[in-house]
Amino acid sequence: MTKTLNNKAWLFVLPVFGIVAFSAILPLMTVVNYSVQDTFGNNQFFWNGVGWFQDLLDPSTQLGERFFDALWRTLLFSAIILMIEVPLGIAVALAMPREGWGVAFCLVLMALPLLIPWNVVGTIWQVFARSDIGLLGWAVNRLGIDYNYTGDPLDAWVTIIIMDVWHWTSLVALLCYAGLKSIPDAYFQAARIDGASRWAVFRTIQLPKMRRVLLIAVLLRFMDSFMIYTEPFVLTGGGPGNATTFLSIDLVKLALGQFDLGKAAAMSLVYNLIIIAICWVFYTIMTNADAQRGRVQE
């Protein structure tokens, strides 16, 4: 559907262009500028060409090793998060009532964690999971399990993952629920008449009809988890050791802790490109699938 042309429309877009240029393009240019230089402070910069990028992408250098460690850690984290939150979100959505007073109740309950600011989430869990005064940490230890997220890398990971699942599964669940609600009743009735099992109904009706929202959910959860910063920063500060130092945390350590602006700039650019590349892959999959559907319906 094409709209009637109206040249005045461009005027309305202009301010947005201005803001985007100021807030995104200019800072990005600064980062690009830093990434090809070295600095020892005092605003003195030296040309370094693609040196930082070479170091960064070569695992045998110190910078490269550090970068790849953090990258694998982050990818692993995102993979675990997706593997837990997507199936769990679908399961929760399926279990939610389709009508009655329970709907509103469930929706409010689901929305609650989403309303809490990230740093507060981190703080809540930091206290909640402490083995001395935290309810969770104390209880787990009382059960005879040696649990200490500040000392044990595995405990730290488990804590961060549980925290993220608690915080974000409801987003996946709400999206899936919206997808499920849009399926006409006739489909379920037809499936019952066809003698389909619960599993067959899920596989042949619910899952296909949820595909689009699921792709959106996966994309959102991937981007968010891949860029996770605040919660682990508050909870573990990247530790113990470097166990939970994800790319974003590492980047901040490099840039603000060590003030290696050049290295950090190069790293952030690569980080950015990885995210864009993965999102592009998702986007192509989604639009391809849609285009196929579109062709089919005409």
């Binding site: 006739a186 009735q189 389909a196 042949t204």
Partner: peptide, 26 residues
Amino acid sequence: IAQVFQFPVVYDTMTVRENLAFPLKN
């Protein structure tokens, strides 16, 4: 009992053959 609804109900991901075979497969 078989029922045909106001709006056609087909399982989109399946071929016509799989659609027709579905009640038998179940």
